[in-house]
């Protein structure tokens, strides 16, 4: 059964949080793939994955970051920032 965008976003948020604990970074594309793997093709499609990521970012729960490539992370202090 199709998942709601909120359910997918919650799942993705959990993935990002767990990854960050072991200092691993996930790309937006990885998150969609993980969601499809977890919920199946009937549960999630790529478009829904995209909407869930947008939801995550607009709710302020996740931010885009860049380290040679783009990732989705929990908001944190900029490593390079000066106090």
């Amino acid at each position: 059964m199709a998942k709601t965008i909120e359910e997918i976003a919650d799942f993705m948020f959990k993935q990002v949080s767990e990854a960050q604990e072991v200092s691993k970074k996930l790309k937006p594309g990885d998150l969609t793939k993980l969601a499809i793997k977890a919920f199946g093709d009937e549960g999630v499609d790529k478009k829904m994955g995209k909407m869930a990521i947008k939801e995550l970012v607009l709710s302020g729960k996740c931010v885009y970051t860049y380290f040679g490539g783009s990732f989705l992370e929990l908001p944190h202090r900029e490593g390079a920032a000066n106090d």
Partner: peptide
């Protein structure tokens, strides 16, 4: 210069390149 990786405008993931001097 140091490369930032997180600054940007809300909702976008591109368009801003973070930069900090290492001699603040």
């Amino acid at each position: 210069w140091k490369h930032g990786g997180i600054v940007g405008v809300f909702g976008y993931g591109g368009g801003v390149i973070g930069r900090y001097t290492d001699l603040p």
